[in-house]
Structures are given as C-alpha cells and as structure tokens.
C-alpha cells in the first residue's frame, strides 16, 4: 500500500529515472557510434561483400554473372595446390613462431638490465622492424640472388668443396632459394631478422612488469637461475608470451609478401602459401569467386584459432 500511496511521486521519480536511463543509453550509443560505423564500413561490409562474391561466378575482368553457391566452396579444396599450400603454411607458421618467440625472449632477457651499451643493442635489434616487409624481402632477394648477390661467393665455395668431396651433386648445388627446404629456411631467416626485435620489445615490457621483490625473495631462498626463470619469469610472462604467440601465428598464417618477392611460390610449387593461392586465383586466374571462397575459409579458420588461443589465455589468467 505504501508503494501505492507513494505512487504519484514514485511514478514521477520512476519516469525521471527512465528518462535519465534512456538519455544515458543514447549518450552511450553516441559515444560508441564512431567505432560502430568504423567496424560496419571496414569490417562487416567487406566481409558481406566477400561472402557475396564467394557465392557468385565473379570474373575479375567482367564482373559478377550469377549466384553459384556452393560451387566456389567445393572448388576450393579440389585445386591441386590447396592441401600442399595449407600444410606448407602450417609448417612455415610453426617454424617462424618457434624461432621468433624464442629469439625474442632471448633478446629481451639479454637487454632487460640497464647497462652502458643496452640502448644501442635494443635499437639495433629493433631497427629491422622499421623496414616494410616488401622492402626487406627485396633486400634479401638481392642478397640471395645468384646474379647480383654478394653472398654468392660463399655458396660457390660451399658447392665447390661439396662437389669435390662427393657430398653435393653438381646438378643440385646448394642455393638460397633453389630448393623447397632452402627457400623455406632462407625466408624464415629474413622474417626472424626482421621481426625478432619487435617480439623482443613486447616481451621486454612483460619482463619489466615483474616486480624485483620476487626475484630478491627467490635469490634469498637460494633459487638457481634456471629455477628462477622457470618458476618466476615464465609464469609471470605468460600474458606477454600469449600475445606474442597470437600475433606471430596470425601473421604467419597470412604470409604473402615475403614469398611473393623471394620465391613466387617456387621452386616447383614448394613454397605456396594459402594467401598466395587467394592472390593467384583472383589476379592470375581472374576468378574472384573462388578467391573469395578461399578467403572466407581462411577467415573462419583464423576465427577458430584465435578463439582457442583467447580461451587458453583466459584459462591461464584464472589460475
């Protein structure tokens, strides 16, 4: 009853509260609007377009002809290069992630303590990250080239010695980009050279966020360096490591520039990545429909992978 008796004032108060709540909601919506527009224009709309394209017979030169869903999707895995490209991309991702995160952590540990030359070291490790990937790839293409590369003399010496010793077949001499294995390793070297400083930076920030007190306590307790690293540094660096892994894996699965410049997918189609397949389908075979279907498949794969990784991070954070 009291509530009923108070209802005229209550109604007025409730009305004010509703009005205030609504105006807060509108204000919130206005604040969020720029981001919503950005996401809609630069993400949702392109994805919708790509999906439409992937469901159509869409030529690069003559445009869309008709909806043909799901033909483009069934064509994706039917291509002879699809599964080799998937496996190669995974192989490359594992290799690059192992070296990049490992070396990044090593460099971060090396430069975490302040001393006279640390600034110069940090700068020199980070410097290659400032180069564009295509530029760096072109630089390495020049270095690896048999025609203009300065490293060719080293290879000639290795080949001559190997041939004399009967270890190298003259028809299959070692070259930086001449076989699937050396092309993969040469490209991995470029990527590790270019990006290890960047991952060093991410992990350095994580390292410097670990309180010194913990290390002092461990030292007083007589912990060895390895025990300190395993039981303090690694667990407290977990979030930075997880971030590095996500960036590295996602970036490697989308690898294109470095292989486009260095190998063009060769020799003998041994270094074709999934994104190269998308490019080839779109711009060489002029079939935007199948290229878009490939893009959607890759998008779904990346979404699933990132979801798993984020779940892992959250689970680790809850521990």
């Amino acid at each position: 009853m009291a509530i009923i008796a108070a209802s005229p004032r209550g109604k007025a108060g409730s009305g004010r509260r509703v009005g205030w709540k609504r105006s807060r909601q509108i204000l919130g919506l206005l604040y969020a609007m720029p981001t919503m527009i950005y996401v809609a224009v630069f993400f949702v709309l392109p994805v919708c377009l790509v999906f439409l394209m992937s469901s159509s017979s869409w030529s690069l030169l003559t445009g869309s002809k008709a909806i043909n869903f799901p033909d483009n999707y069934s064509n994706v895995s039917a291509g002879a290069l699809f599964w080799p490209a998937v496996w190669f991309t995974i192989e490359y991702t594992v290799l690059v992630t192992f070296f990049l995160v490992g070396l990044g952590l090593g460099l971060a540990l090396l430069v975490q303590e302040g001393s006279r030359w640390i600034g110069a070291l940090r700068t020199s490790f980070l410097l290659p990250s400032a180069l564009g990937l295509a530029t760096a790839s072109l630089l390495y293409w020049g270095l690896y080239s048999g025609s203009i590369g300065p490293l060719n003399g080293v290879l000639d010496a290795i080949n001559s010695t190997g041939i004399r010793a009967g270890l190298i077949d003259p028809a299959n001499q070692v070259t930086f980009l001449g076989s699937g294995t050396t092309a993969l390793l040469s490209t991995t070297f470029l990527i590790v050279w270019k990006f290890s400083g960047f991952y060093m930076l991410i992990l350095l920030v994580g390292l410097q966020a670990i309180p010194h007190d913990i290390y002092e306590a461990a030292s007083i307790d007589g912990a060895s360096r390895w025990q300190t690293f395993r039981s303090i540094t690694l667990p407290l660096l977990r979030r930075s490591l997880a971030l590095s892994l996500i960036l590295c894996i996602t970036g490697s699965l989308l690898a294109f520039d470095q292989f486009y410049v260095l190998t063009h997918g060769g020799p003998d189609n041994t270094t074709v990545t999934v994104v190269q397949l998308i490019y080839r389908e779109a711009f060489i075979r002029q079939n935007l429909g199948t290229a878009a279907a490939l893009s959607i498949v890759l998008l779904v794969a990346l979404l699933a992978l990132n979801a798993i990784q984020f779940r892992g991070i959250r689970a680790a954070g809850d521990d």
Binding site: L49, G63, A282, F283
Partner: peptide
C-alpha cells in the same frame, strides 16, 4: 588483433572488387 586479422583477410579478397 582478431579484428585486424579478419579485416586483413577480407581486404585481401576485396582488393580489385568494384562495380562490374
């Protein structure tokens, strides 16, 4: 990061797309 990755993939396929 996920958004940027997704946007990158999408844009790879969208480049070159225009009116017929």
């Amino acid at each position: 990061f996920r958004l940027s990755a997704l946007a990158t993939v999408a844009l790879v396929a969208v480049v070159g797309c225009g009116s017929s």
